[in-house]
């Protein structure tokens, strides 16, 4: 009996798929053949090696990205285009200029993020402008979270400016970093990109989930709004996940009474 036959029997035995006749043949073989016993030990080592490999965590953004693409027909709950600009930017002329700039920005975002956007229709939600800078005098930082790991730095701040809420994300990384922001616990949703600097590989705004992926120096400000505008003030919890290459690096939370 050759080594292949022994391995064939051992292979089926390891999978619990050995018939009674084959079982008897294998038992006899193991008793009589040193090579068969060596093959058994090798196969057990292989099994142990393969079964011992770590189970991998999917990237934090994967679920949101799949759902974004799976629901292209879900009507987005979006406000009238540019309506919120009035509250932020005084002067009709300047608002029109910014609205025009926004069109270019939306196109740029679409080109930059390409197919990573959930659906071409989604760009209608990416209405943005050169909105108030996070560092402006009227900005209050409600809560912030600093993520630091080897090769990764990111700061996420929940801010209030001129009565509006903003999420300000800054990052400086040596490798692609995924940031997943879940706002369901805060009753908030991403309403629009207010400011973007540099290019992101992924920007996905879906319902109450925001997924970002980028490398290098990046900054993004998102305008937030309450899902239920009539809801009373409550403690808001925004969950953050920082991951790279499918590896969860850190979780964090932003908390505030809105």
């Amino acid at each position: 009996m050759n080594d292949d036959r022994a391995l064939e029997l051992l292979s089926a035995a390891a999978d619990g798929e050995l018939g009674a006749d084959d079982r008897a043949e294998l038992d006899q073989l193991l008793l009589s053949s040193t090579e068969a016993r060596e093959s058994k030990a090798e196969l057990e080592a292989l099994d142990s090696l393969l079964k011992g490999l770590p189970e991998l965590e999917p990237p934090a953004y994967l679920h949101a990205q799949i759902m974004a693409r799976a629901n292209p027909t879900t009507p987005p709950q979006r406000p009238a285009k540019f309506a919120w600009l009035g509250a932020l930017v005084p002067g009709a002329g300047l608002r029109y200029a910014l609205a025009a700039a926004t069109g270019a920005l939306v196109a740029a975002i679409f080109i930059t993020t390409g197919s990573m956007l959930s659906d071409p229709d989604d760009v209608t939600d990416l209405v943005g402008t050169m909105a108030p800078n996070a560092a402006s005098a009227n900005t209050d930082v409600i809560d912030s979270f600093a993520f630091r790991d080897a090769g990764f730095e990111s700061d996420v701040q929940l801010e209030r400016s001129n009565g509006s809420l903003f999420l300000n994300v800054q990052m400086s990384t040596a490798a692609p970093l995924d940031i997943s922001v879940d706002m369901a616990g805060a009753g908030l949703k991403a309403d629009a990109i207010a400011q973007i600097e540099s290019d992101f590989d992924l920007i996905s705004l879906v319902d109450q989930a925001l997924s970002l992926r980028a490398v290098g120096e990046q900054r993004l400000t998102i305008l937030l709004r309450r899902v239920d505008d009539t809801a009373s003030a409550e403690e808001a919890k925004i969950s953050l996940e920082f991951s790279s290459d499918g590896r969860l690096l850190q979780r964090g939370t932003l908390t505030a009474t809105l």
Binding site: E55, L56, E57, P58, P59, L62, H63, Q65, I66, M67, R69, A70, D245, G246
Partner: peptide, 28 residues
């Protein structure tokens, strides 16, 4: 459905493709 199956599907895809990015693409 996605939440229940994304991890095993992603793991199988990773072992097939050998790359995290491609595994995420396959899973999606």
């Amino acid at each position: 459905l996605v939440r229940e199956l994304q991890k095993p599907v992603y793991n199988a895809a990773y072992r097939m493709m050998g790359s995290a990015d491609e595994a995420a693409d396959v899973a999606q």
